[in-house]
């Protein structure tokens, strides 16, 4: 079923690996590490900002992930698709806090022309924004440097049941197939004389039907075909083979953990636990410790933040 594009010779981008979000060179330093290490790195960057209120540290984490992307030779141009999100999230968050700052007599009003904003909730929002960005970039880092296969190997190495890892991997692949189908259906629409620019609103709704019906029909048919194929390959979804043993896992044997992997994991785990303890034991990363917050407090004549 060669859809829209006939790939020349079928083999494109031999020197690049297609990741979930883009391409990374085969010799990217990331691939020297075991998928499990990379997954743990993802968990670290994606979760550690939860412990951290201070925007300075979260900002540093964003810079850190970008440096890692550069080091991993990922295609930074792909990050452009996140720009609208990054900007609109900021607009949304600040708009909400300016329009609905809450009613607290301890807040410090700041008058900018006709507008009154309150310092404390705005700074809190500023900090939250960077926390969100830090987590977001952690996610981006993982998805733009790992393929489905890496993710599956990592999940299976961590003893996730085969069925679960299969569903996760296949659903990502399925998403790709639907995007392809979607494009072809759009072309087919156009070939039948549909001019989108001339559509009324009611017809726009109808347009959804035109996309969705074939999309779902194809999915249903595909579900049948794939389940037949799985049957023909002796698959049963318990993950057990005939004599009751677990199915063997050949692909996992292609990867081995090295000393470097263990070192990186140890460092990340230590930092992670350390951050958790520092925050929940000692409140180390709370806003009163934020240098910018302290500076602004002094500029506004508020003394030390508490």
């Amino acid at each position: 079923m060669a859809t829209s594009a006939e790939a020349p010779g079928g083999v494109r981008a031999a020197k690049l690996r297609k990741t979930l979000l883009g391409y990374v060179p085969i010799e990217s330093p990331f691939y020297r590490y075991h998928p499990v290490t990379r997954l743990i790195m993802f968990v670290f960057f994606g979760v550690v900002p939860i412990f951290i209120d201070m925007p300075e540290i979260n900002f540093a984490l964003v810079v850190c992930t970008i440096l890692l992307l550069v080091w991993g030779q990922a295609d930074l141009k792909r990050l452009r698709i996140y720009m609208p999100m990054i900007v609109t999230i900021a607009i949304f968050m600040f708009l909400v806090v300016i329009l609905a700052p809450g009613n607290d007599p301890t807040f410090t009003p700041i008058h900018i022309g006709p507008l009154t904003i309150y310092y404390q909730p705005v700074y809190f929002t500023f900090a939250s924004y960077w926390r969100l960005m830090a987590m977001l970039f952690g996610t981006i880092l993982y998805f733009s440097t790992n393929r489905e296969r890496d993710m599956l190997v990592a999940l299976r190495s961590l003893k996730l049941p085969f069925l679960a890892s299969y569903v996760v991997g296949f659903s990502i692949r399925a998403a790709g197939m639907f995007m392809e189908d979607f494009n072809t259906i759009r072309e087919a629409e156009q070939a039948r004389g549909l001019d989108k620019s001339a559509l009324k609103l009611g017809d726009q709704v109808k347009l959804y039907v035109m996309y969705l019906v074939p999309l779902f029909s194809i999915a249903l048919r595909r579900a049948d075909e794939i389940s037949h194929a799985l049957f023909a390959r002796g698959y049963n979804f318990t993950g057990r083979v005939g004599h009751g043993n677990k199915r063997s896992d050949y692909i996992l044997t292609q990867y081995t953990m090295t000393g470097m992997d263990w070192l990186v994991i140890a460092v990340l785990m230590t930092l992670f636990v350390g951050a958790a303890v520092a925050e929940y034991g000692f409140g180390a990363f709370r806003l009163p410790h934020s240098p910018i917050n302290i500076l602004l407090h002094h500029l506004l004549g508020l003394g030390w933040p508490s």
Partner: peptide
């Protein structure tokens, strides 16, 4: 688009992509 469709029609290889009614 509309001018072209009455002049040149295109039948896709996989019918499933173009049947939506």
């Amino acid at each position: 688009v509309k001018q072209l469709v009455t002049r040149i029609g295109y039948v896709f290889q996989n019918p499933d992509h173009q049947l939506f009614n």
